[in-house]
Amino acid sequence: MKVLSKSKLETALNKLNQSAEVFLPMQKDKESGFYSWKLFNQGQDELMLNALNVYLPPKNVVLPQTERMYSIKQEGQEIKIDKTFEDSSPRVIFGARPCDLKAILCMDDVFLTRGYEDSFYKCRREAITIVANACFQPGPACFCAAMEINPLEPAGADVIICDAGEAYSWEAKTPKGEALTAQITEYLEEKSLSLPAAKPFVQDVKYEGVAEKLKGMFNNHIWERLGESCHNCGICTYVCPSCYCFDIQVKMWGDEGYRFRCWDSCMYEEYSREAGGGNPRGSGIERFRNRFLHKLEFFKERYGTPLCTGCGRCIVACPAGINIVKIIDEIKEAELDA
């Protein structure tokens, strides 16, 4: 098999960096997330490829938190759209864990299927090559396998690497992956490598049947109890690798400006507030319910897979200690209202 020795990793990254912007898991000061290799400060920052995962997912690479869409220019009654800002510059996400990769596939479903292709997403996405980092040692908060993911052989990767101590195995899975491989072929060796044995998951999460059961639980009393300590902040949605909801807004200086889109959160009251002031999800509990139903039921009904990828980030970040694993358990145990 092809092998990338860890001692050659940085030179390989430098090579890839010549033709694409490479995003990797890094610790920068107190934060960890996917940052450009260009911003890596030798001696200060730490590469986190060997860590379980980083706190902020690579979502912003495929769906930036703020993304300009088009320019607006007004002259009297005339209005012009001179420029649109689709960005198809080449990028590599290097070392995405299977949970984060699956989250991107979920976003592909949203932005590229069901009648319309979102041009801003499509241009950016087509120029992205994903090197997935297989997981042999799930962390204590992980439950990707329960959410229909194979952590050892994740679907949808362009390249899959496996950490075997001194080196990574390197396997191209798609033409894009082959092209990436060709770029660094001088740093790859052909040899056999023994991969680590997969460790069992710490948490036992049973998602089977949850989506189906939830269909009858919209009006269940359980939501009040589960959601009443929720602060309705947006942390869970913003650290989530798969939450994709966005807002479209405009910024003008006098007669010129642009329209942009930015992440939005279904936890915010403003999210579904109508122009006339009405809001079908005016209460925090209703918004809480909608989020979990979207993750565990609605998305599965529409796209055939849950929108939760078991990365555990929301569990780690929630100020109120709300735990999606516990919620799945409680849904399983809940009695259906008569």
Binding site: L52, Y55, G139, P140, A141, C142, G312, V316
Partner: peptide, 8 residues
């Protein structure tokens, strides 16, 4: 939990 999970 950040440390326990391995994310911090």
């Amino acid at each position: 939990i950040g440390m326990y999970s391995g994310l911090k």
